[in-house]
């Protein structure tokens, strides 16, 4: 009998492995192996037909740190993350509160907020090109009406990154709204009633009741926004190409440029590893945070 149970258990284990194997194999091929291979290749010099590539230790990383472009791009990406993450979360929350309130034309409001989410980033960039075009664009037409002179929003270093940031916020806020909307619908309406009877105003209710209850959603959205601040760079291809003079260049775009425009894959690999390290830290931090918050629930 015992023998039978053990046999059954082993058969189940085998089934489990077989079911998971195809996915795990593909995942290894396109995520785990390339991550390790990237690290390995980041330790070698760039080979040419004359000089084969040789082991260089962490030289490629040293080159990156010595390159002023690295610091510009890293700073840009920090600003990009530092602005897009909080601003799109705040917009998402406001949108969700409004899209959840009993207001006229609510379904129109909901779809208006959500529509940018389903557009390709490339298309979004094209739409915004129409806003940013100097002199002829919508923004300059409006400011020109008030007598301001035309501005080359995408072509000058002071405004290029900001222009890119606005498109990203426009694109992702509606997506995050959905998660807040889902969370808001699980909050019982009695809570608001109870808070009102206790004399809590709207602001107090939002701050003391709503926000803490939405915290797990906020963590989830925050992590997604963080990943997006690495990932969402498609619009650069249309709007600025990272320019002028690297003023709007972001890390992933730079990696693409190094690898596929300058064919310098060792340095691209080193940069990729740095990004993966940061993402890994984010992953660990998220698991910690989620653990902490699930204790409260």
């Amino acid at each position: 009998m015992n023998e039978m149970a053990r046999l059954q258990q082993r058969r189940l284990a085998l089934y489990g492995w077989m079911l998971a194997a195809p996915a795990l194999a593909l995942m290894s091929l396109f995520a785990f192996y390339p991550a390790i291979a990237t690290f390995w290749h980041s330790l070698f010099t760039r080979g040419t037909s004359r000089r084969p590539s040789i082991f260089a230790g962490f030289e490629n990383y040293g080159d990156l740190f010595a390159d002023p472009t690295f610091w510009t791009v890293a700073t840009n990406n920090l600003i990009y993350a530092g602005v897009t993450i909080p601003v799109s979360i705040i917009f998402a929350l406001i949108m969700a509160l409004w899209a959840n309130a009993h207001i006229p034309a609510r379904s129109f409001v909901r779809s208006a907020y959500f529509t940018p989410t389903i557009l390709p980033m490339i298309a979004a960039a094209n739409l915004w090109l129409f806003f940013y075009t100097p002199d002829l664009g919508v923004i300059d037409q409006i400011t020109g009406f008030f007598g301001a002179s035309p501005t080359n929003w995408l072509g000058q270093p002071e405004t290029a990154l900001a222009s890119v940031i606005i498109v990203t916020i426009w694109k992702e806020a509606g997506f995050f709204m959905i998660f807040y909307l889902a969370a808001l619908q699980t909050i019982p309406p009695d809570l608001r009633e109870a808070a009102r009877i206790e004399g809590a105003g709207r602001w107090t209710y939002t701050r003391r009741v709503l926000l803490p209850l939405l915290m797990p959603t906020t963590i989830f959205v925050f992590v997604n926004a963080m990943i997006n601040s690495v990932k969402l760079i498609d619009h650069l291809f249309i709007l600025t190409k990272g320019g002028p003079n690297n003023a709007s260049k972001l890390i992933l775009y730079w990696i693409w440029e190094m690898a596929f425009a300058y064919f310098d894959s060792p340095h691209a690999a080193a940069m990729t590893i740095l990004v993966l390290l940061v993402l890994g830290l984010v992953a660990v931090a998220q698991f910690r945070l989620v653990e902490k918050w699930t204790h409260y629930r």
Partner: peptide
């Protein structure tokens, strides 16, 4: 967290 987007260099080779 290991985004396919980030691993473009190696995935292209594969």
């Amino acid at each position: 967290f290991i985004l396919p987007e980030v691993l473009i260099v190696e995935n292209y080779a594969i």
